[in-house]
Write a protein that binds this DNA or RNA. Structure first.
Length: 1102
RNA sequence: AGUCUCGUAGCUCAGCUGGUUAGAGCGCUACACUGAUAAUGUAGAGGCCGGCGGUUCAAGUCCGCCCGAGACUACCA
């Protein structure tokens, strides 16, 4: 028996199927039944169990799950090893918040050991919740043997990878300018700068300084800065190559001296008002306002300024190489300032870069160890070499002083006639989130991966990757690769993978450790050489690893560089580290590299996607993945990003409990492409639930109800397709077309296309057309009167077989996206028939389409049938003739024989659908058709070109005779603007527009007319149908079983006599009436029939 | 600031390589239908296809600029 249900309860189906999967290990079987030699490799991007799962995780994981399930059904072995991302700043922050400590406390109030122990505990805080959502949403991933990034084996693989990079010369220590908090004494990551509240508006003293040209008299470059404290460190100026610069003569507003200044033409009006050849020094004294000038003496492009030299502005320290030149910088703009940028390589990333590219040195002094250091120390104070300001803080670090040092610098410049202008300036400036004090951009030592060296190769490899959507790969990711910078690996933190590099104090000797074994050997060596008693720490994290001292070739002790590495390296290393390659599982790794498929949010483009790609390219000269889907964000119904502060986050557990996992998954996939942002709207969820799952459920229920009655369990041989009715062949043809398309969509990572096509098929074709039109075939009362089983004739059998095939195929097509309902449907069907020996749809093969049964002509035919029916129904509606009233005929204009043949094939369907007796074809030759002619723009456009417009008007003006002549001769000589063109029938679109004297309806290419005259026979039949309808309603009201036989007594009335006399048998057959009487008085309810006829009727069970 | 995505009916989305009445579903209104009924059919209202400019005989579709939403990247001096 097919299971029957009282109503659709999707969350309950989730539950039931989930229990079934677990009890029978369906996931394991789905993997293990497939050959190891036919793999589809998937990498799971590890989530961090340190935060709770959100609805966007359901999105990302639906994408991952569905392609894995699909490939699994296509016969691939798809192992899905889960994983956990366990390192990183968010975890540290969490711990600190819980303990109420800051980073300064580490090593003081809490030991590194304890601190890391807390991190390790915290990391898996929400693991249970993650496992739960994974299970409930139907995400199949192996949670039994996940990789965990904090395990020693994982770290060892990372060390091995770093060693590979080291040996290739791709790992180096260097300087960069990084955000640095002097108050906290630590560098900050860009993540920390992006914390809320980090950027705040502050007021600084800005200065436009005058840099004196070498070899000229009182000529100056003007450069603007909001950080005057960087001026002593200036070593260059930057201009834009294509920016136009002016040399302007004026007076200095502070000293009244005649000067010539150079600045960008676009910035002139920011500093000057108008020219005045009569200008006097006293005219320019007005405060900070723009001043007049004498004249403009020169205009040049920035390129012409390149290489010009100027005198050092604040000569406290001398550079060790030639400096103080004008450089070209592409970052120079004319939106602020003077269009000339002051360059202090020690305090700006752009500055650092452009200076290095041009061989300009930074201004540095030597620290106590003889290493170069900038003119500001790590506490944020000027060094003693900057005599005037020695020891003063460059920003507000809570010191007490009369004026900020910036102001004193400005005063000094003013006194020295080097200041053009100084103003207060309000701008947004980053602050350290822990100390609340301003951040400095400061040169810091860091370890880098020389990613730029493999830039081209990464770019090439990227071109072999199939990105979904393409634009992310070519645009966002491709552009990112083009502008690739070296990868800053260093993080000065505690909970993460330690950098396995040890250095001697002189910094001259170093070693990069690539395995635990190597570490052991080196430790033994060191123990011997230095007389120590160390061993390999049980835990490779800090602080234990920091205690290890190694020995250099020259016998010097070496200490570990205290940096940890960027956690992104952890996740990018997962293809290797998840298997502890190369220390174990060499074969396994080789079989699972690179991945066929990965998926993650677009925000991972520069995260996981990049680090996977970079490591694979650098270490293995390979891609890490062949196909990648990057999904967009999940927004709320208004299109706002979901965030805790807005309170618009959706609890995924609640959503799944209320609507089911399948509705959630289906909604997410069908509503928008996964790479577009999804506006998550519960109304849309309800629509999916009702329209798609509701309809499919109804279709199944309908099938189950009658199949059970008829004992149809698909045991009889299949009726050959050629012997099935047109509509069966049609739906099977569509079904096979569908299989083909959906298969291609899934293979092409287009889940939205696939879902929408399945949905359209189920709603429009299967339910609203096939089942609706075929209802009678499942329910043939006349043949059921003498018992049920005998009633199975070939037509009915064909109907059952056809519907069964559609349903079971749909269950497979939808299985990747809606795994629960699909399995429910599949098992309900297959458990009753036992046709396939799979216990679950997820163990079945994806359907294959048979081209032999795809009949495009038939599909077109049925399309005609649907359109003709729709037009006839709209005519009925317009004429207010109910559908139960039969009519004589439809008039159908025929423009070509092929159309008539096609319609002939579906004639019976149309007639029964619209309740009309016949179709009469009105051919061209009858002369009563009125036609419309339009040019075929596609064929004519190219030929006619500019004449097209006039031709279009000329063709529209053609009369009926012209049209029929064109149809007969199949040619036409068109003359426009003195040009003549030979046109053929192809160059026109001719449609029947009207049948004069008839009511017509038409869509794009089909026109129909309806004969609405009635005669006695038709009226009687119409009445009979209405009587059937009323009796059926009563049966239903009285809750009779569909198989119950009844006795009916009708009150005699002239209006119904012809109907009962002529169509009594029909009425009886339709309503399972054994005995139908017309009597004078009836003790029963009153029914109303057309023509305001009211009669009494009694309906009783026999 | 740069890079990328998106902008079509009240809402969610289709609109293929440019081709002439711009579509669907939901919602709304009205009318039908009724042994699939938490369904279904038909009709109606509802569109400066974000704006401006360009290419073209022809632009929702191609190009440029701008506006709006979002993401990522970024020390704008």
């Amino acid at each position: 028996m097919y299971r029957e249900y009282k109503g659709l309860n999707l969350p309950q189906i989730d539950q039931e199927i989930l229990e079934f999967w677990e009890a029978n290990q369906i996931f394991d079987k789905s993997v293990e039944q497939r050959s190891e030699n036919n793999r589809f490799v998937f990498y799971e991007g590890p989530p961090s169990a340190n935060g709770k799962p959100g609805i966007h995780h359901v999105m990302a994981r639906t994408v991952k799950d569905l392609f894995c399930r699909y490939q699994s059904m296509k016969g691939k072995r798809v192992e899905r090893k889960g994983g956990w991302d366990t390192h990183g700043l968010p975890i540290e922050l969490n711990v600190e918040k819980e303990l109420g400590i800051t980073k300064e406390d580490i090593g003081k109030t809490i030991s590194v050991e304890e601190y890391n122990e807390r991190c390790r505990e915290t990391v898996m805080r929400y693991k249970d919740m993650w496992d739960d959502i994974t299970r409930k949403m139907g995400y199949w991933v192996d949670l039994q043997n996940p990789y965990i990034t904090f395990e020693n084996s994982y770290i060892e693989t990372i060390w091995w990878l770093l060693r590979q990079l080291y040996d290739k010369g791709l790992l180096y220590k260097g300087y960069t300018i990084q955000p640095y908090s002097p108050a906290a004494g630590t560098g900050l990551s860009s993540h920390e700068l992006n914390l809320p509240g980090a950027y705040r508006d502050i007021t600084d003293t800005s200065a436009v300084a005058q840099f004196k040209l070498k070899g000229a008299v009182d000529e100056y470059f003007l450069a603007w800065t909001t950080t005057p404290w960087t001026l002593p460190s200036n070593t260059a100026l930057a201009v834009g190559k294509d920016i136009t610069y002016l040399k302007v003569r004026t007076y200095n507003r502070y000293t009244g001296k005649l000067i010539s200044v150079i600045l960008a033409k676009d910035r002139l009006q920011a500093y000057f008002t108008e020219p005045n050849p009569e200008l006097k020094p006293e005219d320019v004294k007005a405060g900070n306002k723009p001043i007049p000038y004498l004249d403009i003496v020169e205009e040049v492009k920035g390129a012409a300024l390149e290489g010009m030299e100027y005198e050092q502005l604040m000569p406290y320290v001398q550079p060790d190489k030639p400096a103080f030149r004008v450089l070209l910088g592409d970052f120079v703009s004319t939106e602020d300032g003077t269009g000339i940028v002051h360059i202090a390589p020690t305090f700006g990333a752009d500055d650092f870069k452009v200076a290095r590219e041009n061989g300009i040195p930074p201004l540095t002094i030597q620290d106590s160890l003889g290493n170069p250091m900038p003119l500001v120390d790590k506490q944020g104070r000027f060094v003693k070499e900057v005599t005037d300001f020695a020891g003063r803080y460059v920003k507000d670090y809570g010191q007490e002083e009369e004026r900020p040092v910036d102001v004193d610098i400005v005063i000094k410049l003013k006194e020295e006639d080097k200041l053009f202008l100084s103003e207060k300036y309000v701008h947004s400036y980053p602050h350290c989130w822990r100390t609340d004090k301003p951040v400095l951009y400061y040169p810091l030592d860091s370890w880098f991966i020389r990613a730029m060296a493999v830039k081209e190769r990464m770019f090439e490899l990227n071109q072999t990757i199939n990105w979904k959507p393409r634009s992310t790969g070519e645009g966002r990711f491709g552009k990112w690769l083009e502008n690739l910078q070296d990868w800053n690996l260093s993080r000065s933190r505690y909970w993460g993978t330690p950098l396995p590099i040890w250095r001697s104090e002189s910094q001259q000797e170093e070693i990069c450790i690539g395995s635990e074994e190597e570490l052991r050997r080196e430790i033994e060596k060191a123990n011997e050489a230095l007389g120590l008693n160390q061993s390999v720490p049980k835990d490779l994290h800090r602080p234990y690893i920091d205690d290890v001292v190694l020995v250099s070739a020259s016998g010097q002790p070496m200490k570990r560089e205290t940096d940890l590495i960027d956690v992104w390296f952890d996740s990018g290393a997962m293809p290797y580290a998840q298997w502890h390659y190369p220390f174990e599982n060499e074969k396994v790794f080789e079989n699972n590299f690179p991945a066929d498929f990965i998926a993650e949010g677009v925000d991972q483009t520069r995260g996981w996607f990049y680090t996977l790609h970079a490591i694979a390219a650098m270490v293995f000269d390979s891609v890490a993945f062949k196909n990648v889907v990057s999904n967009g964000l999940v927004l709320d119904a208004e299109g706002n990003k979901m965030s805790k502060s807005k309170g618009n986050v959706l609890d995924p557990f609640e959503t799944i409990e209320n609507y089911s996992a399948d509705v959630t998954r289906w909604y997410m996939m069908s509503n928008a492409n996964p790479w577009d942002n999804l506006k998550f709207d519960l109304k849309g969820m309800e629509e999916v639930q009702r329209k798609f799952f509701g309809t499919l459920y109804n279709t199944y229920s309908f099938f189950a109800l009658y199949a059970n009655i008829d004992q149809f369990f698909n045991k009889a041989p299949q009726v050959p397709l050629s012997e099935r009715p047109e509509i069966d062949r049609w739906v099977i043809s569509l079904l096979n077309s569908l299989v083909k398309e959906v298969d291609a969509d899934y293979a092409d990572y287009e889940p939205t296309q696939a879902a929408r096509k399945v949905q359209n098929f189920v709603n429009d074709n299967l339910s609203n057309w096939y089942v609706r039109l075929c209802r009678r075939r499942f329910w043939k009362p006349s043949e059921q009167q003498n018992g049920s089983k005998a009633a199975m004739d070939k037509d009915k059998l064909a109907a059952y077989q056809t519907l069964y095939e559609c349903l079971i195929t749909v269950s497979k097509l939808m299985a990747p996206t809606a795994p629960f309902f699909a399995d429910w449907l599949y098992r309900n069907l297959n458990n009753a028939t036992g046709m396939e020996n799979h216990e679950s749809v997820h163990l079945a093969d994806f359907p294959t389409a048979s081209d032999a049964v795809i009949d495009k002509a038939l599909e077109q035919r049925m399309d005609y049938a649907q359109r003709i029916s729709s037009l006839v129904l709209s005519l009925r509606k317009k004429e207010k003739i109910r559908v139960r009233q039969p009519l004589h005929k439809i008039l159908l204009p025929i423009l070509d024989n092929h159309f008539q043949e096609q319609v002939e094939g579906v004639k019976e369907l149309v007639l029964s659908e619209v309740n009309v007796k016949d179709i009469e074809y009105v051919t061209d030759t009858s002369g009563i058709l009125k036609k419309r002619i339009k040019p075929n723009f596609k064929t004519l456009g190219r030929r006619l070109g500019k004449d097209m417009k006039d031709a279009s008007a000329a063709i529209a003006a053609l009369g009926q005779e012209d049209i029929s002549r064109i149809e007969k001769t199949k040619q036409f000589l068109l003359e426009v603007n003195g040009n003549s063109y030979e046109l053929t029938l192809e160059d026109f679109e001719i449609t029947a527009e009207d049948i004069p004297g008839w009511q017509v309806a038409s869509d794009e290419s089909i026109t129909v007319a309806l004969d609405i005259t009635l005669d006695a026979a038709l009226e009687a039949e119409g009445m009979a149908r209405d009587i059937v309808n009323r009796i059926q309603n009563i049966r239903k009201d009285k809750d009779f079983e569909v198989t119950d036989k009844i006795r009916v007594a009708l009150q005699r009335d002239d209006a119904i006599v012809p109907a009962v006399e002529r169509y009594g048998d029909y009425i009886k057959a339709e309503t399972l009436t054994a005995d139908l009487q017309m009597v004078e008085t009836v003790d029963g309810e009153e029914i109303e029939l057309p023509g305001e006829v009211k009669v009494r009727i009694s309906v009783e069970k026999q």
